[in-house]
């Protein structure tokens, strides 16, 4: 099976935040939980770049390695998912995550911050595919319907790419070749450098 990844072509991102909005709508993400966000670097200066960032579904995911109850698992597609039935809301995954992906229902003291929530690559969770129970805990399961994550699917400038890591990397490299510039595959070195195949 393909190893799926996200890639944000920052030279195309116009910070429209439609990916964020689409994600919010697709999964009915409550206010305050930000599965995806757009970060603008050097905002207002010449050469500013915006990057749409969510869980990168890392190879050898740091969150999974540090989870005290081992609630994470990686699907055959390379998507990093977790079980909210096991999660104890300790927040270790947030310390380990290079991309600030984990979100918690409550803010304040460590003790009772609730079950962690994060981007599922629109792949749901351990519950049976496309069930009501799965939706209530993890949101829509588009992958089970043969669709890609909604954020990348509707990106108006096709800046945010999702799909087979090898293919989207090829698309990006072609773009860079043609136009002659590229600010980099944001996060890839940090997320995937642990695997020899990238």
């Amino acid at each position: 099976m393909a190893r799926v990844k996200f890639l944000c072509d920052a030279d195309r991102c116009i910070e429209c935040n439609a990916c964020v909005t689409a994600c919010k709508n697709e999964h009915e993400v409550p206010w305050g939980i930000n599965r995806r966000r757009v970060v603008t670097i050097n905002d207002g200066k010449p050469g500013e770049r915006s990057v749409s960032m969510a869980c990168m579904h890392c190879t050898d995911a740091p969150c999974a390695a540090v989870c005290p109850v081992s609630c994470f698992y990686t699907t055959a597609d390379g998507v990093v998912l977790h079980s909210k039935d096991l999660c104890i809301g300790c927040g270790y995954c947030f310390y380990a995550c290079p991309f600030g992906a984990p979100q918690y229902p409550k803010v304040g003291n460590f003790g009772s911050r609730g079950k962690m929530d994060k981007c599922t690559y629109c792949a749901g969770g351990p519950e049976a595919d496309s069930t009501r129970a799965e939706y209530a805990k993890y949101g829509a399961n588009r992958l089970a319907e043969g669709k890609l994550p909604i954020c990348a699917e509707m990106c108006s400038t096709k800046s945010l790419l999702a799909g087979d890591g090898a293919i989207i990397a090829e698309i990006y490299k072609e773009r860079v070749m043609k136009r002659g510039y590229g600010s980099g595959m944001w996060g890839w070195k940090t997320a995937y450098s642990d695997s020899p195949t990238g």
Partner: peptide, 8 residues
Amino acid sequence: PTAEAVQE
């Protein structure tokens, strides 16, 4: 477009 663009 890339003269002063940030590079990862």
